[in-house]
């Protein structure tokens, strides 16, 4: 397994997933890098999809462990500066910041397992890979995912309404 090729293919989706899951940029980078280190340390081999599934599962467990010892206290609504290469108008930047806060709030309002399932689904994983990571039966994923989606969109919609 070539280090540079694997790293360049897998790191960005992995760190984005970790960031979405943890809500914290530093945590996301630490965990994604740790998962990459373990991948090469353990000499994990397999298809590209298999390697990616291994990385995401490892990262999910690392984040889960981290927040378990913190009493499952997710960091809420951590505001990070928007990094973009395109010039953005102040209104667009404000809207983007508000959208980000809403999405973060909706994710943080979800149970951990629902959040992991939702984020894995929207990172392109199959139901079987999701089931393997969150330790549920593959036949339950559709039902649980439907519930997670409804929960996310309902909080997202509520967060968009004026107080």
């Amino acid at each position: 397994m070539d280090f540079n090729t694997t790293f360049d293919e897998e790191y960005l989706p992995l760190v984005r997933y970790c960031h979405r899951l943890s809500g914290d940029r530093d945590t996301a980078e630490d965990v994604a890098q740790e998962a990459m280190v373990r991948l090469f340390e353990h000499g994990v081999e397999g298809s590209s999809a298999g390697v990616r599934a291994w990385l995401f599962k490892t990262a999910t467990h690392l984040i889960r462990d981290r927040y378990r010892v913190e009493g499952n206290r997710m960091r809420l609504l951590r505001e990070n500066p928007v990094m973009t290469t395109d010039p953005e108008t102040p209104d667009a930047a404000l809207e983007r910041t508000e959208n980000r806060a809403r999405a973060r709030r909706a994710l943080d309002a979800m149970p951990a397992r629902d959040r992991e399932m939702l984020l894995m689904r929207y990172s392109g994983f199959s139901y079987r890979e999701i089931a393997d990571t969150v330790d549920v039966a593959a036949t339950s994923v559709g039902t649980l995912l439907a519930r997670a989606e409804h929960r996310f969109t309902s909080v997202l919609a509520a967060a968009g309404e004026p107080a």
């Binding site: 790191y11 960031h19 997202l156």
Partner: peptide
């Protein structure tokens, strides 16, 4: 809608620095 909302969360990450760190 969900994919769009999740994309809003994404930030830029420095892959080259991360590669060196790993």
């Amino acid at each position: 809608d969900i994919a769009s909302a999740l994309t809003d969360l994404d930030e830029g990450f420095d892959v080259a620095s991360a590669r060196e760190a790993v």
